[in-house]
Simulated assay, not measured.
Amino acid sequence: MTQQHAGPHAGPGATPGHRHARPAARRRSAYPYWLYLPAGVVYVVIFLVPTAMAFYFALTRWTLFDSEFVGLQNFRDFLAEQNLRIGFQNTIVYAVLTSGLKVVLGLLLGVLLTSRLRLRGFLRSVVFFPVLVSTVAVGITFSALLRPDTGLVDKVLALAGISGPDWLGDANTALLSVALVDVWKGVGLATVIYIAGIMSIPTEYYQAVAVDGGGAWHRFRHVTLPLSWPATYSVIILSFIGGLRSFDLIWTMTRGGPGFTSDTIASIIYKQYQAGFFGLSTAGNVILFIVVTAIVLPLNYFLGKRQVAA
């Protein structure tokens, strides 16, 4: 009896070659590969080439007109910086504090601004407005508001009989003050991400909780909180990376002071650049890149597993 060949719709008896033909076809790109070429060229020219050049110049003492190869000496000098330990500690504290507050406040504001408020659209605009303002402008404005005695914040506290501290001039409050300003400026973006995540949750889940007699807390605890995890994941990653790399707001408000108490890795790098040690500052940038990568990749992996499990 002659064996019949399996057709295109063959069942379990189809040969392995036919069974794997369709999945292979599905894996093919939807567009011709040459359409990716312009984006690839931009990525190589704008990102990969400067990154490779930074790694090279980190191994040299260079100016605009000359360079001398010194190997790993720049890295040794940067790691021997007297204030690097303080800067690294401040960087971690700043990143954890700002990202944590953005997650908590962003979630609460997201829940509030997806409820049935009459001025919901206006309030969303108000919350997002600080994101649109220049970071340098925000730093200058809050530096004036937080001045001891003459600043608006201390004047308001004086009306209540409270003597405010030197917010930016006290080593105990300088970094915290800048972090709170950073949260004020960045929480709007976190809120928008949470709004998008909450609005994508099917209403059937909330209806099921209502049928079971659950109230607002049960809706938040058993529906909103777990199902908005993708938004939480995005906010944590984005805000944590931003916190680790933060420079402009810190430099505008405290310049790393008083003394070196609010220095971060980025501000230490900039001080080296100001002093004319270009190779040393480039090595610092490479070290910052490695530090951010070493922290964020495991964090991304852990949160990604949590997202799949959720």
Rank of each mutant, 00 (worst) to 15 (best):
residue 3 Q to W: 06
residue 8 P to R: 14
residue 9 H to M: 11
residue 12 P to G: 14
residue 13 G to H: 11
residue 18 H to L: 14
residue 24 A to L: 14
residue 28 R to I: 00
residue 29 S to R: 06
residue 30 A to N: 00
residue 34 W to M: 10
residue 41 V to Y: 05
residue 42 V to H: 10
residue 43 Y to D: 00
residue 44 V to P: 02
residue 47 F to H: 10
residue 48 L to P: 06
residue 50 P to H: 06
residue 52 A to D: 03
residue 56 Y to Q: 06
residue 56 Y to S: 06
residue 62 W to M: 03
residue 65 F to T: 15
residue 66 D to R: 15
residue 66 D to A: 15
residue 68 E to A: 10
residue 79 L to A: 12
residue 82 Q to M: 04
residue 83 N to Q: 11
residue 83 N to A: 10
residue 88 F to M: 15
residue 89 Q to M: 10
residue 90 N to H: 09
residue 92 I to E: 06
residue 101 L to K: 10
residue 103 V to Y: 11
residue 105 L to A: 12
residue 106 G to M: 12
residue 106 G to A: 12
residue 106 G to C: 13
residue 110 G to A: 09
residue 110 G to D: 07
residue 112 L to G: 10
residue 114 T to N: 11
residue 119 L to T: 14
residue 122 F to N: 07
residue 123 L to E: 03
residue 123 L to M: 11
residue 128 F to D: 00
residue 135 T to H: 01
residue 136 V to E: 02
residue 137 A to S: 13
residue 149 D to W: 13
residue 149 D to S: 12
residue 151 G to E: 12
residue 153 V to S: 08
residue 157 L to A: 09
residue 157 L to R: 04
residue 164 G to C: 08
residue 164 G to R: 03
residue 167 W to D: 12
residue 168 L to M: 11
residue 168 L to H: 03
residue 171 A to K: 13
residue 178 V to C: 07
residue 178 V to I: 14
residue 179 A to N: 05
residue 179 A to C: 08
residue 186 G to N: 11
residue 187 V to Q: 01
residue 193 I to E: 05
residue 195 I to K: 14
residue 201 I to M: 07
residue 203 T to H: 11
residue 207 Q to I: 06
residue 207 Q to K: 11
residue 210 A to Y: 05
residue 212 D to Q: 04
residue 216 A to L: 12
residue 216 A to F: 13
residue 221 R to F: 09
residue 221 R to H: 11
residue 222 H to C: 06
residue 223 V to P: 04
residue 230 P to Q: 08
residue 235 V to T: 09
residue 235 V to N: 11
residue 239 S to E: 02
residue 244 L to N: 00
residue 245 R to W: 01
residue 245 R to M: 13
residue 247 F to G: 04
residue 249 L to K: 10
residue 250 I to V: 13
residue 255 R to P: 00
residue 258 P to L: 05
residue 262 S to K: 11
residue 263 D to I: 01
residue 266 A to F: 12
residue 268 I to S: 13
residue 271 K to D: 04
residue 273 Y to V: 00
residue 276 G to N: 08
residue 277 F to C: 00
residue 280 L to I: 02
residue 284 G to F: 05
residue 284 G to R: 10
residue 285 N to V: 08
residue 285 N to Q: 09
residue 288 L to G: 04
residue 288 L to Q: 12
residue 289 F to Y: 08
residue 290 I to D: 03
residue 299 L to V: 07
residue 305 K to P: 00
residue 307 Q to G: 04
residue 309 A to S: 10
